[in-house]
């Protein structure tokens, strides 16, 4: 199967390498910046184009991997569906719930497979937490805290800094935890959220949300793009007979490079290598679905719900009122 990468930034590079290590061929790269498309295309001897729609329409392409800025996802997904391609779409699924629905119905109509890459469902530590929960180690869960974040990402043109485009940390990053929350604890009843969304003097976003789940569980979800550096994930699940915690600061490897006198000392770089990257696991599951019938653990409907919940959180942040889901 031959893959086209649409959007050749950080995620485009990552997904190209994951698709390639699954034995797929990257044959075309599309990005509105030709140079970005070229840089990635050269690594795979693929074609480069600044016309992503043309790349999607290429009859040689079997799979379209959408890694472009969020507001462009739905348009590319619909075009790919109409061209009969299988679709791998980076999260968030789309910028609005309507866009999610349009993309889903296009895929349904064209009978193509549409996968949204909620990679946290494939992270080993998150799977381990689900296994412990399922084994009853915390008893009945009552409180969950999920924390994620670090630097404010750049992105081409600094598009993440445009909150209208990216939805800030709430839509772009917290959505990981929002999806996992719903995956693990079911649907939410309502949400209250505070989100900083600052642009001046510097882009800083910090979002804290309380989701009340239909089960009664209270979940505090915190997303940060406020740190001058680093990246951290922290989770806590409390039940009536125990608690599970995870902290990404605790890694098996820390490295720090010696620098020449006078140079800025290098920062400590943590690493936690695993047998298979969660990104590769999601690609494997997606490919198995494309080839056969086995549904992946995350559906386009799940991804739509995650967008709906994240947008509800942003609505709450805007209005200062809890929002019913």
């Amino acid at each position: 199967m031959r893959v086209a990468i649409i959007g050749c930034g950080t995620m485009g590079h990552l997904h190209a390498s994951m698709a390639a290590s699954c034995g797929l061929r990257i044959i075309a790269c599309g990005d509105k910046y030709k140079h970005s498309a070229k840089v990635l295309a050269e690594q795979y001897s693929a074609a480069a184009s600044d016309d992503s729609m043309a790349v999607i329409a290429d009859p040689e392409v079997d799979i379209v991997a959408i890694c472009s800025p969020t507001p462009t996802h739905a348009g590319y997904a619909i075009a790919a569906a109409e061209a009969g391609k299988s679709i791998f779409c980076e999260k968030p699924f789309a910028r609005t719930v309507q866009q999610c629905r349009d993309a889903m119905s296009a895929a349904r109509k064209a009978k193509v497979k549409l996968f949204v890459a909620h990679v946290v469902r494939y992270f080993q530590e998150f799977e381990a937490m689900r296994a412990q929960l399922a084994a009853g180690k915390v008893g009945k869960p009552g409180f969950v805290k999920l924390y994620r974040g670090g630097l404010f990402p750049m992105g081409a043109d600094g598009w993440f800094r445009d909150y209208e485009e990216s939805g800030g940390v709430t839509l772009d990053s917290m959505i990981h935890d929002i999806d996992w929350l719903r995956y693990t604890f079911g649907d939410a009843e309502r949400v209250f959220c505070q989100a900083l969304r600052r642009s001046e003097p510097e882009a800083i976003d910090y979002s804290t949300a309380t989701f009340r789940m239909k089960s009664g569980v209270i979940a505090k979800v915190i997303g940060t793009w406020a740190q001058p550096g680093g990246f951290r994930v922290e989770t806590e699940i409390c039940g009536d007979k125990g608690m599970i915690q995870f902290n990404s600061d605790e890694t098996p490897i820390f490295t720090m490079k010696r620098t020449a006198p006078g140079e800025t000392p290098s920062t400590i770089v943590p690493a936690s290598p695993v047998p298979k990257s969660p990104y590769q696991l999601e690609w494997e599951e997606f490919i198995a679905w494309v080839r056969g019938t086995r549904q992946p653990r995350v559906t386009a409907r799940d991804a739509t719900e995650a967008v709906r919940m994240a947008l509800a959180a942003l609505e709450s942040a805007e209005t200062g009122k809890p929002v019913k889901l």
């Binding site: 409180f143 209250f192 505070q194 009340r212 009664g216 505090k220």
Partner: peptide, 19 residues
């Protein structure tokens, strides 16, 4: 948001999530 979600047989909340 608060509730009695963790400890049994009590008549108070045991978790509060505040903003």
């Amino acid at each position: 948001e608060n509730g009695n979600l963790l400890r049994h047989g009590i008549d108070t909340d045991d978790v509060g999530s505040l903003h």
